[in-house]
Design a protein around this nucleic acid. Structure first.
Length: 160
DNA sequence: GCCAACGTTGGC
DNA sequence: GCCAACGTTGGC
């Protein structure tokens, strides 16, 4: 799997922290994707993403988990400032400013969609291979196959 | 609140 | 390098 070849991603956010509505209300509809503390997810942000890539904005750890909107990658990688903030739940005392361990991307909301529930994703035969649906999958950022993107963004969520 | 599954830590 | 213990994720 060539990490630089993906054009589409699914990114999980807890809506209590940052919902699709929060992103749409932010300046330039853009939010810094703070708090990723998993190396695989970090590496996707560092090495895999390109500005303009499509993002499925997923609400997790909430009463109605599922895809809540469409967004796009809006910046290159840069250090996540919360790692250096002792007051932040994402503080990492072992990370040095001269060698930041954690990175983020800016993510720009494109549109809110209907809530596409996790159960509906699971029920769709064409989406069975989606990484986020695999048993035990916990990664907060996963690449999305272009076929899956088309089924969701241009199909299930088209115009909604 | 439960718990399956995964990632990280740290002793050896 | 192994692997048990522990912490976290996240749906239900």
């Amino acid at each position: 799997m060539n990490a630089a070849s993906h054009r589409y991603w699914l990114m999980k956010s807890e809506p209590d922290e940052c919902s699709i509505d929060d992103a749409l209300a932010a300046p330039d509809r853009t939010v810094p994707w703070t708090g990723v503390r998993n190396y695989q997810a970090r590496n996707f942000m560092r090495d895999g993403m390109q500005v303009g890539d499509g993002v499925l904005f997923y609400h997790s750890s909430c009463p109605a988990p599922g895809i809540a909107g469409i967004a796009r990658v809006a910046s290159g990688p840069r250090p996540d400032p919360t790692q250096f903030d002792p007051a932040s739940p994402y503080h990492d005392a072992a990370s040095r400013p001269e060698a930041p361990r954690w990175l983020l991307r800016d993510v720009q909301a494109v549109r809110k969609t209907r809530l596409l529930p996790l159960a509906e994703l699971r029920a769709h035969p064409g989406l069975a291979e989606m990484l986020v649906l695999q048993r035990g999958s916990r990664l907060s950022i996963t690449p999305v196959d272009p076929v899956h993107w088309a089924l969701i963004a241009d199909g299930l969520l088209a115009g909604r």
